[in-house]
């Protein structure tokens, strides 16, 4: 098959997928990711509804982080397409923000909290230009939104884990994106930080943004999120929390891990009674 034919094929394929609307911030079609020839994600299809808070849940090793990284082009995909508002990642890049896992960076690095938040503005600043006062002020505002403006000058190793996570969140806010990917922002944070993150998530939703978050705590899914993707190598179920966050689907996702399931069923029951 020639390259031209392949291109035509993929084009015709695109036209035969009506669900891939231009409004959907993220459309993933038939995405497969493999490490060392072992598939980590298998044939993933997913369309994110606009302006919703989406949780990705699944057991360890289910490919949650990999899903995010593959969408952002940080790990290569074996097959499939990823589109953002109908555009390629390259074209939509400036509208997409990313909060990596906290452990992914060296917190002894000689930068202040404000320096880190300013990094969120680098794309707006552009190549080879210095960080100006205007951008520092914008970064300060973002620190203020997560309640961290008093710590702007602190070196980042002098912050607690929760404070570091809030700095990461502020950096994402500084990107002023329309779609955010967050990799376990709630992992190992204190109660105050958890509240701060939830507030920020809600504020983002109010501004019409979409947030896709890897989340570990099944209990809080119904409380914090609108949509959920149940992931275990493939998408077990995806949709509104009220519809797909069920005992049956969780059983399919987590298999026999019963302790988790009993916690989750409590949460489902709470959510159900809340809806009534």
């Amino acid at each position: 098959m020639t390259a031209q034919q392949t291109q035509q094929d993929s084009q015709s394929l695109a036209t035969t997928r009506p669900e891939h609307s231009l409004e959907s911030p993220l459309s993933v079609h038939a995405m497969t990711v493999a490490y060392n020839r072992k598939p980590v994600l298998w044939d993933v299809d997913y369309d994110t509804p606009a302006n919703e808070l989406v949780a990705i849940v699944g057991p360890n090793g289910a490919g949650k982080s990999t899903f995010i990284k593959a969408c952002l082009g940080l790990v290569p995909t074996a097959s499939g397409q990823v589109e953002f508002w109908g555009q390629s990642y390259r074209d939509a890049r400036s509208r997409i923000g990313y909060v990596p896992q906290r452990e992914s960076v060296d917190w002894d690095f000689p930068v202040s909290a404000l320096d880190v938040v300013c990094m969120g503005r680098y794309r707006k600043i552009g190549w080879c230009r210095p960080v100006t006062k205007k951008h520092k002020l914008a970064a300060m505002e973002c620190l203020e939104r997560v309640g961290m403006h008093d710590f702007a000058k602190r070196q980042i190793s002098q912050l607690s884990g929760g404070q570091q996570q809030r700095v990461f969140l502020a950096r994402a806010l500084a990107q002023e994106s329309d779609l955010y990917f967050m990799d376990e922002p709630f992992a190992g944070v204190d109660a105050a930080t958890e509240r701060a993150i939830v507030e920020v998530l809600r504020a983002l939703k109010d501004q019409g943004k979409t947030v896709i978050t890897v989340h570990h705590d099944l209990q809080t899914v119904p409380e914090y999120f609108d949509h959920v993707i149940l992931l275990n190598m493939r998408v077990v179920a995806a949709g509104p929390v009220a519809v797909v966050f069920t005992q049956e689907n969780l059983q399919k996702t987590y298999g026999g891990r019963l302790t988790l399931l009993s916690e989750a069923s409590e949460a489902i029951a709470r959510a159900a009674s809340g809806r009534r």
């Binding site: 990284k69 990313y98 690095f109 930068v111 320096d115 990094m119 960080v131």
Partner: peptide, 22 residues
């Protein structure tokens, strides 16, 4: 001097640097 900001972000957080286009 010219690439200070780029070298800093690539050393601190390569994944973010890449998603930002650096």
């Amino acid at each position: 001097g010219v690439l200070f900001k780029e070298l800093r972000i690539a050393a601190f957080d390569p994944a973010l640097a890449t998603t930002l286009g650096f």
